[in-house]
């Protein structure tokens, strides 16, 4: 999928959880949201991107993405 869109979408999610008071809450919030709402192929793609550095992801979003389990391809 268009990586640029995925990055924008991930950062949008990060924007909401950015209001949380602690870093842990910010990261956990984003991570849970991605785990619950993103289809596996989107998660695979964003994780791959984050593992390569994920330059355009905001910090807590990158940390959150790196926490995700990556489902195997079907």
């Amino acid at each position: 999928m268009n990586l640029e869109r995925l990055v924008i979408m991930a950062n949008d999610i990060g924007g909401f959880f950015g209001g949380e008071p602690t870093a842990e809450e910010r990261i956990a919030g984003v991570s849970n949201h991605l785990a619950k709402f993103w289809d596996p192929r989107m998660r695979r793609q964003i994780v791959a991107y984050a593992r390569e550095g994920g330059a355009d992801l905001s910090d807590h979003v990158r940390a959150a993405v790196l926490r995700l389990d990556v489902p195997p391809k079907t």
């Binding site: 999928m1 268009n2 869109r5 619950k36 709402f37 993103w38 289809d39 596996p40 192929r41 989107m42 489902p71």
Partner: peptide
Amino acid sequence: PEQGLRIPNMFEAALDGE
């Protein structure tokens, strides 16, 4: 047990040929 694609994601995936 894995959530699927939302409408806009379907469109994106279609453009990817998936």
